[in-house]
Simulated assay, not measured.
Amino acid sequence: MATPPSAAAFLKALKDEGLTVVEVGDWRTHNRNQKGPWGPVHGVMVHHTVSKGTARTVEICRDGYSGLPGPLCHGVIAKDGRVHLVGYGRANHAGLGDDDVLRAVIDERALPADNETSTDGNRHFFGFECENLGDGKDPWPAVQLEAIEKAAAAVCRLMGWDAPSIIGHREWQPGKVDPRGFEMSDLRTQLHARLGGKAPSKPTPAPPTAPVVDLSQLVAAARSNPKASGTPVTYAGVRTVEAALVDAGLLSKTYSDGHYGSSTVSAYAAWQRSKAGGGYRGKDADGIPGRTSLTALGRAHGFTVKD
């Protein structure tokens, strides 16, 4: 699932993971969506804030600053482990990054070195800013590191992802150093274990909808022009039936052109005469589709029929 979930689902996922969540103002509708789309989303990006003090950090991440309007992330993970939600939707947190890195995140494989700024990361990532000066000296309390892991796990469970979907800003955009003070590889290892040591089940895609052939429109197409070939008729169901006749070995691909010409008539007549097609004879096997023979063809070759 790459479509962003609702704000309510995001909030529930964080709470279900055992996090203490602080909802800041109108966070559910505070975003930069007017500047471009958010989604499809493919991963979670972790940052440090280069700031001190939770209240001020949350304010900056919500409102932004001159030249970079907020929100600057979706959630701020404070030193005490609380997650302050400041926005939901497109946020100014990731900037431009490496398209090869994005493909690796989507494939959930090892990341290549980031050496390009060609792809809009604000569109494709959730973002968590973590309260830290980012100088390599400011400590990362255990409760905060656990909260980062839980926040990442919450999104992974919600989206059907595993640990390779979590990256640091420094792994996305050349020149960035955040988050500084812990290893992203360690976070991914711990996250993988939290998720049960295996990738969560990804949503099962809906099976493709079987094509529907309208019998009356097909009959009209069959009676319209019995030439061998010509301009395709406007009814798309002809191509569906021709493809089935090709699969059945009754029609050459040469004449599978969306035109119910004489070759298609002959092929369909052969289907009608076959045992599977009804075993018709004489005028009942004239190549003009009937309900029984067409239903049998659809059952054998993956389409349904309506009158």
Rank of each mutant, 00 (worst) to 15 (best):
R188G: 04
R194P: 15
R123C: 13
L96V: 00
D186V: 14
H124R: 14
F182N: 06
L195C: 10
A193T: 15
K176R: 14
L96T: 04
H169I: 06
E129D: 15
L133Q: 08
H124W: 09
S201I: 10
E129K: 02
F128Q: 09
H124K: 12
D99H: 12
D135I: 03
R103Y: 04
A142V: 11
K198F: 08
P174W: 07
D162Y: 10
M159V: 02
G121R: 08
P207E: 13
A154R: 02
I166K: 04
K137T: 14
W172A: 01
E149S: 04
R90N: 11
Y88L: 09
P205W: 00
E116N: 13
D186Y: 12
D138A: 03
E108T: 10
P112F: 09
V105T: 03
G87I: 03
D99T: 13
A154S: 10
K176Y: 10
D98Q: 13
K137W: 09
R180D: 01
D120W: 10
K137I: 07
Q173C: 10
E131H: 05
V101D: 07
G127K: 05
P203R: 12
A110F: 11
G168L: 02
K202C: 10
V143K: 06
N122Q: 11
N92K: 04
P179G: 12
Q190N: 15
R109H: 12
G97L: 05
L111D: 06
E108R: 11
T117A: 10
G136Y: 03
I167P: 01
K137G: 09
P141R: 07
F125C: 07
P174Y: 03
M159H: 08
E131K: 00
W161T: 06
A154T: 05
Q173P: 13
H93L: 06
R103Q: 15
C130W: 00
G95K: 03
P207A: 15
A193S: 15
V177K: 09
N115Y: 04
D120Y: 12
L187A: 09
S201T: 14
R170K: 14
L195H: 02
W172D: 00
F182W: 11
E171A: 02
R123T: 15
